[in-house]
Design a protein around this nucleic acid. Structure first.
Lengths: 373, 373
DNA sequence: ATGAAAGCGCTAACAA
DNA sequence: TTGTTAGCGCTTTCAT
């Protein structure tokens, strides 16, 4: 069933039918009703692609993801979908499947220009109006879509300022606020369990952590400045070293209270979980004997006992916002390049004790990120 | 740059250029080279949509997901992408975002026909060649895409036999094999921590569990047949009831050894984690004092100490296979409806002790699901 | 081996 | 208010 056939049945021209369908032009109520009835009867559905051919606008958005199986990606896509539904645009998903190709090494995240170019060419061949690129690690990267010649927004990664719009979250401030929170509860002896040194979030989170310490006039002993490479086991090992002064110690190796930190700031939730484990092995209670914080708001943090204090990344909102920026640029090519950095929400789990009140139980009003972006 | 312009520059007809691009027709080497050179020089890229209009075939596949943020969905999509890349077809993602709409209640998974119809109409309007529907819970459902009039494959859910193709995994056999494994290691006192009673996987897993018990001549005491609703906290509470005979017991409430199970089969990994917690609270070591199994192969199971015995669902393969079935039907409409059920891979974590050898440490050769589907 | 030309289903300028 | 008509960029039949 085509628009032409509808026109014939209704005894009007194709233009009239087109006007009715698109609410354009000036159509009499009578004609409109007649046409709509026939459309309903026949179950006619317009061929969007044919229209696009003429209009040179498809309403298609390319979502180019480095890897869809990486934890944050689907949440970002979900945010994109949310706005796409509102704006009647459609998403073509292109998945570079980098995890498989790089074998999980953070350092090989380059040299994919050929894969990317191919994916972009495909998307452009499908006449997408613009592209959102979702990174698998938050980082500064080449403007790999420079040649696209269509509006582009980077999400969960970014390029040199001014080159393209991007949407990120604020690593530094979030870690600062977490650390501040810990300090405000009376902690002065605080250790750090860091992520991959080459990773940008690790660098930023460290910066935020140190800033909070500095503001409070606290110094970080060298032996409390460990690296856990974002890994559970390594995080646990780091915690044990800090708490015992030895590699792989047990209960009896535990340092005297005044030589141990009262709190540990881990740069992600996995390592925080490692700290929980280390504490359990050493017979330390959380948070009475040791406070812990994480980062990322992994699902399991809600189920730990006690719940973990962590930072929730605004993933849904980042996706929503990325599409919003993209659509603006599609509407108006002259639109400014915009680089957005959203704050995280700090989830105040009960994993940090409060020395001021002596009460370690903290209100836990955690909700999942509001979808009402 | 259009095909027509290429033709002009090359001094040939548009037909010839089309032949060169598509390797069809009989073109002299000379002409071919000339055209190809010009294509390269100009950076011309063919407009796939325009071609589709004529061919009545787009190479577009609609992926209609109930919710992309549900754990298994991205892995299935990843499998689809894998084959899509090979076959040069493109995926349009439509996300029903059901989680938000049903507020996580398993029982409201119906009444979405309107949403689905709308999404399907949109996909059909974009001229997709077929649709893959990915469920958020494995279940029998209405053939909600009956009206699509295009090939459809259900994945991670299914409709009445013969109505449409589907791809699932074998809940019953996997739980059977897990339970067999536990029994084969010498366990006779085995408790069950079940999932939502209304959920089909729970029913099937239960069936597999009971079958293994029956074959071994083991009966399940009523008090060892608990329901944890797939939830961590409820799973933990169930474990405590089973181990102490009371709601919320502590170490001193622990039942005598001969009145406790030696193993607990939990129907998912979350609840298994609850069992780990319960055991820790009651001073029981895993697996020496209590063995545990899970289901689903959640990421954290690899990091538990000891690693959890669980069942890995063939998600990537399910996606790959769903697209494969779909493409067959697109090629040949007369193709049979096919319902595939893949087995799970049992991950032999060290969370189950072996009474035969006295050795509870089991080889742990876990790898992630092979991508080489 | 190559070209002319008729569409695919729709939109939009222009005419009536 | 409605109709005529010329495309959008490509494929494909039928001639040559």
């Amino acid at each position: 069933m085509t628009l032409k056939e509808i026109a014939q049945r209704a005894g009007v021209s194709t233009a009239t039918v087109s006007y009715v369908i698109n609410n354009s032009g000036h159509i009499s109520e009578e004609t409109r009703k007649k046409v709509q009835d026939i459309i309903r009867q026949t179950g006619y559905r317009t061929n969007k692609l044919a229209g696009s051919l003429r209009k040179n606008r498809t309403g298609l958005i390319g979502i180019l993801v480095e890897d869809i199986t990486v934890w944050h990606t689907p949440y970002i896509i979900d945010g994109i979908n949310r706005l796409a539904d509102e704006k009647n645009c459609y998403t073509i998903l292109s998945n570079l499947q980098m995890v498989r190709k790089i074998d999980n090494s953070f350092d090989k995240l380059t040299g994919f220009q050929k894969d990317i170019d191919k994916a972009v060419q495909t998307l452009l061949g499908l006449q997408v109006d613009g592209i959102i690129y979702i990174g698998m690690h938050d980082r500064l990267m080449d403007n790999v879509l420079r040649k696209a010649g269509k509006p582009v927004v980077y999400c969960y990664c970014y390029t040199a300022d001014g080159e393209a719009s991007s949407v990120r979250y604020d690593n530094e401030k979030a870690e600062y606020r977490i650390t501040r929170n810990v300090i405000d509860r009376g902690h002065r002896r605080i250790a750090l369990i860091g992520g991959y040194v080459t990773s940008e979030p690790a660098r930023l989170r460290r910066k935020g952590f140190l800033k909070a310490l500095q503001e409070a006039g606290i110094t970080l002993p060298k032996s409390w400045d460990e690296c856990g490479e974002y890994d559970f086991q390594k995080g646990k090992a780091a915690a044990i070293r800090i708490l015992t002064g030895k590699d792989g110690g047990t209960k009896k190796d535990l340092l005297p209270r005044q030589e141990r930190p009262t709190a540990m700031v881990a740069m992600n939730d996995e390592m925080a979980l490692g700290v929980y484990n280390a504490a359990a092995e050493l017979g330390l209670r959380i948070p009475e004997d040791l406070s812990v914080t994480g980062f990322d708001d992994a699902e399991f943090t809600q189920q730990l006992i006690p719940p973990l204090m962590t930072a929730q990344r605004p993933l849904h909102k980042m996706g929503y916002s990325a599409l919003s920026l993209l659509l603006e640029r599609i509407e108006d090519e002259s639109e400014q390049v915009t680089n957005i950095i959203y704050p995280c929400r700090i989830i105040e789990g009960a994993s940090v004790s409060d020395f001021r009140t002596g009460d370690s139980t903290v209100k836990d009003d955690r909700k999942t990120e509001e979808n009402g972006t």
